[in-house]
Amino acid sequence: MKILVAVKRVVDYNVKVRVKADNTGVETANVKMSMNPFDEIAVEEAVRLKEAGKATEIVVVSIGPAAAQETLRTALAMGADRAILVQTDAEVQPLAVAKTLKAIVANEQPGLVILGKQAIDDDANQVGQMLGALLNWPQGTFASKVVPGDGSVAVTREVDGGLETVELKLPAIVTTDLRLNEPRYASLPNIMKAKKKPLETVDPASLGVDMAPRLKTLKVVEPPKRQGGIKVGSVEELVGKLKNEARVI
């Protein structure tokens, strides 16, 4: 079985994001970029499935600027076999990402597509589910366990009340949650090897996908700041404040 993994290049999760002075977006110039953490988990899961003999080839795909090659190389260093960059500098919203991935799926014919549950920049949590609808494939979202079987895959999902397990007919979509695995760090030899693995660049126009944004961002502002509070010296003082000042207990 071939596995396709979608990876997005995003502002690193450790960066304190700042809103641009002109309120058109957030500052991304000279900011550390990394692979979306949920996508690292997706790549790791694919690599583990291959190591366990359940997958034959791992293709990683990213839609974004030329710099996303770096993200793809990271995935290759983790163990993916081949990479595809659908190169564009335009803003690509989740529906357009899903349509682009659908076109890639048509070419690659994977048995499983693994995505992150959410990109930590747009916090949309949409692409995997949208791709499922466009392909009419089943989806195992927010996965904490993935067990491929014969013609199907069992996915345990993190849901509001706890855990839920579903069985999906293959081909299927999986989106990762935090507990699925702990991604490996690429070793230096593997980083070197990754430089020689194939990375194909695709012109989005050649895919014939409508990528026009449907949402217009009118403005981006900072959230209201919380007033700083005080330090209390003892549990007794704390209880006094909660009872008499805040009146919440």
């Binding site: 502002v11 304190k16 994001v17 700042r18 809103v19 957030v26 930590i120 920049d121 747009d122 916090d123 449907r214 949402l215 217009k216 961002t217 009118l218 403005k219 981006v220 502002v221 900072e222 959230p223």
Partner: peptide, 16 residues
């Protein structure tokens, strides 16, 4: 809607 873990609030208009 909040973006970037709530570090920014975006106002978005839909044409759909």
């Amino acid at each position: 809607r909040p973006i970037y873990a709530g570090n920014a609030i975006a106002t978005v208009q839909s044409s759909d």
